[in-house]
């Protein structure tokens, strides 16, 4: 980076820079240590983990927690449900948002102002949890995947984001196509869409991650356990302390059951978090892009 020139810093400045480095190292450690603790703990035999903490002795390691998770259906089923919900939600979010954002970016659109206000008002005011629940209920969506996929899929903020993005597309491109006699649909498909990969990617990414990690809508809209997304299954294990009985059924002693349940907590955290943890570094630049487009209004 060119910004730091050859001009020398004073001793005080150099000290500050040194302290800065030390603090950053500490911050990085503060982030890594809890994550590493859970990761390592998930491979440890329960009595070791509970009695002496982290150990690097290979005799203390086991894959038992993972075996129990994969032999029992609940986490796997939750995982698959979550893949389905997050994909459906992302699909709806991307398609509906990009279409609407594009239309609103057309300068000449008649009624643009009214429609924009329609969207913006919904951003600042909402009916709240109970009235929204009643709508979902009246639509007969309770206990169906629709209750997870549809509400909230179209975010006003995302529409504004895409509109801003499309406004940045040079008008000449559209005009050239118009002169060639292309219809609106054709312009959108052949000129606009190929240019909008970054914004589609950003919206898809945030929608997918948001849905993957959320539990609340599923908690209020779904009763049927077979429909539970991963986060709800995790909530039972981690927060309500109810490990699915199938995972510890082979144990007779209550104390041993509890120890194993504790280990299963660690392994289920790893199984649930691993996909995003492995993937997000590849998308780093898109997060930065997405946040920047958003901040420009």
């Amino acid at each position: 980076m060119a910004r730091h020139s050859l001009i020398n810093n004073s001793p005080v400045d150099r000290l500050i820079l040194f302290v800065n480095k030390v603090l950053l190292v500490l911050i990085v450690l503060a982030v890594i240590v809890p994550i590493a603790y859970v990761l390592i703990g998930s491979f440890l035999k329960p009595n070791i983990l509970l009695n002496q903490g982290i150990s690097f002795n290979p005799d203390h390691w086991t894959l038992d927690g993972y075996r129990r998770i994969f032999e029992d259906g609940s986490i796997v089923r939750g995982f698959l449900n979550s893949v389905f919900y997050a994909s459906g939600f992302t699909f709806v979010a991307v398609v509906f948002t990009v279409l609407a954002g594009y239309s609103l970016s057309v300068e000449t659109l008649v009624g643009k102002k009214v429609i924009t206000i329609f969207f913006l008002f919904a951003m600042f005011f909402n009916g709240g949890m109970i009235p929204t629940y009643l709508v979902v209920r009246n639509l007969g969506m309770l206990n169906t995947p629709w209750a997870i996929i549809l509400p909230g899929a179209v975010g006003v903020w995302n529409i504004i984001l895409t509109r801003t993005f499309f406004k940045g597309v040079p008008n000449e491109l559209k005009e050239a196509a118009q002169i060639d006699g292309a219809s609106d649909l054709k312009i959108f498909l052949s000129v606009i869409l190929p240019l909008s990969k970054p914004i589609i990617f950003v919206i898809a990414l945030f929608a997918f991650i948001g849905q993957w990690n959320s539990y609340f809508n599923a908690m209020i809209y779904l009763d049927d356990q077979s429909l539970y997304p991963l986060q709800l299954v995790l909530r039972e294990i981690l927060v309500q302390n109810e490990v699915p009985p199938g995972m510890i059924a082979d144990q007779l002693a209550r104390a041993e059951m509890q120890r194993i349940a504790e280990m299963i907590k660690y392994s289920s955290i790893v199984v649930a978090s691993l996909p995003l943890m492995v993937m997000y570094p590849f998308f780093q630049k898109y997060f930065e892009k997405g946040v920047m487009v958003g901040s420009l209004k």
Binding site: Y215, L238, S273, Y280
Partner: peptide, 11 residues
Amino acid sequence: IYAPHFISTVV
């Protein structure tokens, strides 16, 4: 330091 953002609330 981005990592924790991708961990769910439940976790």
